[in-house]
Simulated scan of single mutants.
Amino acid sequence: MKRGDMIIYGCVIIGAGIGLMLDNAFPGVLIGLGAGYLLQYFFRKEE
């Protein structure tokens, strides 16, 4: 598994957990997905 994929999956799971605590899992997943893509963009290695 690639490092960037692990960042995205982790953020999605964290977002889903926060969303479940607030009784809205799907918006939490979407926010986590967006945050994961942003973190992947900032932490990728320059090629």
Rank of each mutant, 00 (worst) to 15 (best):
Y9C: 02
G34R: 05
I13G: 02
P27Q: 07
A16D: 09
G15I: 15
I7N: 00
D23M: 06
G36Y: 04
G28Y: 03
K2V: 03
P27M: 05
M21T: 11
M21S: 13
G19H: 03
M21L: 13
G15E: 13
M1D: 14
F42N: 06
A25L: 11
I13W: 13
K2W: 09
A16I: 15
D23H: 11
A25H: 02
Y41M: 11
L33K: 05
G4T: 08
A35Y: 09
L30A: 07
G10D: 02
G10E: 03
L38M: 06
G17N: 06
D23T: 10
I8G: 08
G15M: 14
M6L: 15
Y9K: 00
A25R: 09
G17E: 02
G15S: 11
I7E: 05
L39W: 09
G17H: 01
G10H: 01
L39N: 10
L30Y: 06
V12M: 14
G36D: 03
I31T: 12
F26A: 12
Y37M: 13
G32F: 08
F42G: 05
L30D: 06
L20S: 12
L33A: 15
L30N: 02
I31C: 11
V29N: 01
I7V: 14
I18E: 05
M1W: 08
L20I: 12
